[in-house]
Amino acid sequence: MGYTIVYLSLIVLIPLATLVIKTAELSPGELWTLATSPRAMASYQVTFGASLAAALVNTALGPIVAWALVRYQFPGRALLDAIVDIPFALPTAVSGLALTAVLAPTGWIGRWLTPLGIKAVFTPLGITLALIFIGLPFVVRTVQPVLEELEPEVEEAAAVLGATRWQILGRVVLPALTPALLTGFALAFARAIGEYGSVVFISGNKQFETEITPLLIMTRLEQFDYAGATALALVMLVVSFAMLLAINGLGAWARRRAGHA
């Protein structure tokens, strides 16, 4: 017990407190200037824009994957179920390298995009695609268990009462899935914001264009601009904590709803 707290403090709490101490060395004005410099603002835009787009794509396609896995029987279902975990298991650097290879103008997918005038590598599109890869398991794995536990009787009752399949989906299934969908979205979004490894390879890291905030922090650190890095890290920490609270709130909401059902 005492050991637990000492170890926790040594590895997690004291290092994180250092960040706060470093921040306290700056005046609020300085902090504001560093955190809202044009380059920082551009990096927020890239990071949050791409993360949002990626999380939305996963929220749209994730339930389809979950539905196929839970409701249908088809050859390769077990394999598909296993493959969904790969983005969790693969080191992020390998993911980034692999996606870059595939999406490069000579790559397996890139060569089909180039004639269409679509450039994926070194553009915000590439960043978004990498973040879709990283976030793919989150929505699938939060929706899947809810879908499994959905009682077929409810859908049967709706059908007996004359509802069409679309009405059942929209009014019975979708409301039951909503908390899981929102949680999955928030998880994918939160993960995408902090993501570094899979993005650096594909982004090209052009200032104001494809520079994500974690990378800007890294650049500041390499220039020994610790104040600049600290200010950016603080912004990211605040957003992470807001997401943490939102996700825990969503979880509590889902449990309450399940209790009423």
Binding site: L61, W67, L69, L97
Partner: peptide
């Protein structure tokens, strides 16, 4: 059913399996 299964396999295959195979081939 076929469409849903197709989209699921297509999405996961395109985003996960193809890059993984690319690493091995490269």
């Amino acid at each position: 059913r076929r469409t849903v299964i197709g989209v699921a396999i297509g999405f996961v295959g395109l985003f996960v399996l193809v890059p993984l195979a690319a690493v091995v081939v490269e």
